[in-house]
Simulated scan of single mutants.
Amino acid sequence: MAEQTFQFGDYELRQVVTAPPYYENCYVVHHRPTASTMIVDPGASPREILAAADRMGGTVTAILLTHGHPDHVAGLQQVADSTKAPVYAHRNEQVILDAAAEWGMALLRTALTVPPVTYFADQAVLDLAGGVTVVATPGHTPGGVCYSFPGFALTGDTLFDHGFGRTDFPGGDPAHLRASITAFLDAVAPEDQLFSGHGGPWAAAVARVWWHNGGAAMLG
């Protein structure tokens, strides 16, 4: 399991690469002024995720989901049970999370369970750790979102380094994903760093150039 740490003003961001076969990126975000820690997309390796959060200090006050696919929520139940922190996701993702057992069996051969989830609506600002801006980005899944912080954003499987999430699973829609990525990249600050659900980070300015010069065409 690999782990990297990044600093953005009042925020410390830790990237935890979880176990194979998916090597999903879980992110632990610590807000120094409030001593609040958030865990984003706890996939496999829940013990390692919890250890990373413990090393950052503070209290885990929330668990955020960019979407509900099994590689992003395989460790959710254990992390939620251990931290007692509330879980947040977009309301349109409930259809995916309600079928977690079936998704788990299909992709991980494990019937996953999901704790209670607090669902929010489009363009919400979550009153957590200095404020978390939510950008609804449906397309990979119906309720996929990106989380934006000062200096960086967590894009889940909406947007990778020179790539994007697949749209052929149930609930995927290439036209929606194309519109979502276009709106997100047009709104995000060019100097922001983008951290995705798989792979390494890249600059928003680079992502914008790639998207408007051929990336978008890959979605038709």
Score class of each variant (00 low, 15 high):
Ala85Pro: 07
Val117Tyr: 01
Tyr22Trp: 15
Val132Arg: 00
Val206His: 12
Phe195Leu: 01
Thr118Asn: 11
Gln7Cys: 00
Tyr147Asn: 00
Trp202Tyr: 14
Gln4Val: 10
Asp192Gln: 07
Glu3Thr: 07
Pro174Ser: 12
Arg166Tyr: 02
Gly220Leu: 04
Ala106Tyr: 10
Gly197His: 00
Tyr88Lys: 02
Trp202Lys: 02
Val40Cys: 09
Pro150Thr: 01
Phe6Ile: 08
Ser36Asn: 15
Ala129Gly: 09
Ile39Ala: 02
Phe184Thr: 05
Leu154Glu: 05
Ser82Met: 12
Trp211Thr: 02
Phe152Ala: 10
Arg166Glu: 05
Gln123Arg: 06
Val117Leu: 10
Gly172Gln: 08
Cys146Trp: 03
Ala100Pro: 03
Pro115Gly: 11
Ala204Phe: 03
Ala51Leu: 14
Ser36Phe: 04
Gly151Leu: 07
Pro138His: 00
Tyr22Gly: 04
Ala217Thr: 14
His31Met: 04
Met56Asn: 07
Pro42Asp: 08
Gln4Arg: 12
Ala19Lys: 06
Arg166Lys: 09
Leu108Thr: 04
Arg47Val: 09
Ser82Phe: 15
Cys26Phe: 00
Phe160Asn: 08
Ala89Asp: 04
Thr158Phe: 04
Gly215Gln: 03
Arg14Gln: 10
Glu12Ile: 13
Tyr88Ile: 06
Tyr147Trp: 06
Pro86Thr: 03
Val134His: 03
Leu50His: 09
Gln94His: 13
Ala153Asn: 03
Phe8Met: 05
Tyr22Val: 10
Val117Phe: 10
Phe8Arg: 03
Gln193Val: 10
Glu93Gln: 11
Ala136Leu: 05
Phe120Ile: 10
Tyr27Met: 08
Thr66Ser: 09
Leu108Lys: 07
Ala99Glu: 15
Gln78Asn: 08
Ala111Arg: 13
Gly57Gln: 09
Gly214Val: 14
Pro46Gly: 05
His198Gly: 01
Gln94Phe: 04
Pro86Leu: 07
Asp54Arg: 15
Ala129Thr: 12
Ala183Trp: 07
His69Glu: 14
Trp210His: 07
Asp98Phe: 06
Gln193Arg: 11
Ala80His: 09
His72Lys: 07
Gln15Val: 13
Val28Gln: 07
Asp98Glu: 15
Glu48Cys: 00
Leu107Cys: 11
Ala19Met: 07
Asp122Pro: 06
Val28Pro: 01
Val79Arg: 05
Gly131Met: 09
